[in-house]
Structure formats: structure tokens, C-alpha cells
């Protein structure tokens, strides 16, 4: 206890206990997050099974190219994130700083693509309540139920929107880490902040891993679907 004085908060016995508690705390929060997204996934599944054809029709209108690129962007950011954790523990501050900034950069890249995508969705009248053309869906062959298509699109916006909110929080946390890295308070002995933010960041990545097949890959695509 005496060797780690200053590192350990008054109510902990030792650093080991403190680290365990911090990781466990974040994992519990992530269990909560699983159910936050789980509630929407459950609702989605109910309608996905019931209105399979309409959901697939709506899914085919979403931009699969941007969705896929964004997946890879996020996976890359996860890699840089985990390298940041590694750099902290290995005591390489420069590498840590680079990795943190890269992670933020990839997070922002994701938002860039997402913004383009949202704009295109608007252009293509895929925003129920704002810009949406029920007639277009009824005239398709085979026709899709405009109501169910809207249902799918509402899910699309809620799920990606919720994910985006988590990304924003994540970028905020990363910025805080950059600040701490600059002040040099992230050391091999005090790496838990990076590890815990990393857990959160990876979880947000995992959510997107599932959003990709649920939203973008629900139906069969053609090569012509690959465009910006």
C-alpha cells in the first residue's frame, strides 16, 4: 500500500484491487449498453421477421458502399485504440499520442462518411416524416409496403443515430485522454484510463459490426449498388 501511495484512492487496499474494479466497472456499464442496443435490436427483429420482404427492399436502398467503408474505418480505429493501450503500458508516450490522435481521426472520418450518407438518404427521399415518397415504393416491382419501409428507415436512423451519439461520447473521452497524455499523467502504472476508454470504444465498434448486416446487408445486392 505504501509503495503505491498517490496512485491508489483512499478507499482501496492496493493498485491491483483498483485496476480490477475499474475494468469491472466498465464491463458492467457495457452490459448495460448491450441491453440499451438490445432493446432496439429486439424491436427490429420483431418487424424484420414479420415484414421480411419490405425490410429487404428498404435495406437495398441504403448505401452499402459507405456502410462497408465505415466498418473498416471503425475497425482501423479500434486497432489504433488498442495500440494506444499498448503504448501506454509499454511506456511510449509518443506512440500513445499518435495512436490517440489517429483514433480520433478515424472517428471523425466515420462521421464524414456518415454525413455524406445521411445527405444522400435525404436526396433519395429516404427520410420518413421529412422527405419520403410512399408512391415510389408502391410502384416498385414487386411493390413494397410504404408503411413497413418507413418502419425500417426509422430503425435505421434510430440505430445509427444512437451509435453516433456513442461515437461522440467516445471522441470526447479520447480528447480527454489526449489532454492527459500531454500532461504526462498516462504512465505504465496508470494505464487504466486508456484501457477503460478503449473498452468503450471497442464496444461501440462491435455495435457497428452488427448494424452492418442488420441494416445494410438485409437483402441481395447488385454491383450497381456500390456507389457513393
Amino acid at each position: 500500500m505504501s509503495t503505491n501511495r498517490g496512485l491508489v484512492a483512499h478507499h482501496f487496499e492496493d493498485i491491483e484491487q483498483q485496476r480490477d474494479v475499474e475494468a469491472f466497472g466498465m464491463w458492467m456499464f457495457l452490459a448495460t449498453e448491450i441491453l440499451i442496443f438490445g432493446a432496439v435490436f429486439t424491436a427490429y427483429t420483431v418487424y424484420r421477421l414479420r415484414y421480411a420482404a419490405d425490410f429487404e427492399a428498404a435495406s437495398s436502398k441504403l448505401n452499402v458502399l459507405i456502410g462497408s467503408i465505415n466498418t473498416i474505418v471503425l475497425l482501423t480505429s479500434s486497432l489504433t485504440m488498442v495500440l494506444a493501450v499498448h503504448a501506454t503500458r509499454a511506456g511510449r508516450p509518443k506512440m500513445l499520442m499518435i495512436c490517440l490522435l489517429l483514433t480520433i481521426f478515424f472517428g471523425l472520418t466515420f462521421f464524414g462518411f456518415k454525413a455524406v450518407e445521411y445527405y444522400e438518404d435525404y436526396e433519395e427521399a429516404l427520410v420518413p416524416g421529412l422527405r419520403f415518397d410512399p408512391g415510389e415504393w408502391a410502384e416498385r416491382s414487386p411493390p413494397a409496403n410504404a408503411g413497413h419501409v418507413q418502419l425500417m428507415l426509422v430503425f435505421y436512423y434510430i440505430m445509427t443515430g444512437l451509435h453516433a451519439v456513442h461515437m461522440i461520447v467516445g471522441i470526447g473521452l479520447l480528447t480527454w485522454l489526449v489532454y492527459r497524455a500531454r500532461r504526462g499523467t498516462l504512465t505504465p502504472a496508470r494505464y487504466m484510463a486508456v484501457e477503460v476508454v478503449g473498452l468503450y470504444w471497442h464496444f461501440v465498434d462491435i455495435v457497428w459490426i452488427f448494424l452492418l448486416p442488420l441494416l445494410y446487408l438485409a437483402g441481395t445486392h447488385r454491383a450497381s449498388d456500390l456507389h457513393f
Binding site: A31, T32, E33, L35, I36, F37, G38, A39, V40, A43, Y47, P128, G129, Q150, L151, V154, F155, I158, L162
Partner: peptide, 23 residues
């Protein structure tokens, strides 16, 4: 484990009410 589901259910109600279109 239960509270997040309520949080989400309430968000969905809010979205449906604000947007006029929903789940």
C-alpha cells in the same frame, strides 16, 4: 440490466412523438 431497456423504450416513444412517425 433492466433500466437500459426502459431508457430505450422511452426514447422510442419520444422519437415517435417528436417525429410523428415511429416504431
Amino acid at each position: 440490466l433492466a433500466t437500459p431497456v426502459l431508457a430505450m423504450a422511452l426514447i422510442l416513444v419520444g422519437v415517435e412523438r417528436a417525429w410523428g412517425i415511429g416504431i
